[in-house]
């Protein structure tokens, strides 16, 4: 990674930036430990192909970001690197079992990383077809509606907070938009099925 790209210099800065939804921090975390993770995972799970290791690394970074953004992970008792590595190894073990012999799966060292229990590891359970359909359906919803729904139901923001962030004139306008967006989303997804 180029030094020009290194915008956030400490774990604390990165954590705060992710909390604030800065996607540069998200990108930086992905690139920062990627090579090291691939090397470590390749040494640990020799049978797993590189592409799957990269896949696991991407899932780890996304899960990590989601937990912070949604306010579920508010404090990290270890380094971002350690957290992500452990998460990545868990993804490999969970989804790449077909490559791994039982002897390859060593218990992971989790001492000092209590936050791990928050992470949802089950988000690869959907099929690719299902995901494609979902993607095309949700894409029909305007960006603003998607954003409002997200802030309301995942980031747990109040209507007043959303009004302030999205520059609505009144809280009522936010509520109306929110209701319409939710109905529209349900319609789109019903139609998809």
């Amino acid at each position: 990674m180029n030094s020009e790209e290194t915008r956030f210099t400490s774990d604390k800065e990165l954590f705060e930036a992710l909390k604030g939804g800065h996607m540069e921090a998200f990108d930086q975390i992905y690139k920062m430990h990627r090579t090291e993770f691939i090397y470590a995972a390749t040494s640990k799970f020799r049978a797993v192909p590189k592409d799957d290791i990269i896949d696991a690394w991407q899932d780890s970074v996304i899960s990590f970001y989601e937990q912070i953004r949604d306010g579920k992970l508010v404090y990290l008792s270890c380094s971002i690197r350690s957290f992500l590595f452990l998460l990545g190894f868990r993804y490999i073990i969970k989804y790449k079992r077909r490559y791994l012999k039982e002897t390859d799966i060593q218990p992971l060292e989790e001492t000092g990383i209590p936050d791990m229990s928050l992470i949802d590891l089950d988000w690869q359970s959907r099929t690719q077809d299902n995901l494609k359909q979902l993607h095309s359906a949700v894409n029909q919803l305007p960006d603003q509606s998607r954003r409002i729904l997200y802030m309301r139901f995942y980031e747990q923001k109040t209507v007043e907070e959303i009004r302030s962030i999205m520059n609505y004139n009144s809280s009522n306008a936010v509520s109306v938009t929110l209701s319409r967006a939710l109905v529209k989303l349900k319609e789109l997804l019903q139609h998809k099925k």
Partner: peptide, 29 residues
Amino acid sequence: ENTQKALEDLRWHQRMDLKARLQNIEKTI
């Protein structure tokens, strides 16, 4: 249940966007 499912799908959509973003970065790398 419908609302919960719709919101869960929305979350999946968001994840797919993030995944696509990382896949683009990966492609560049």
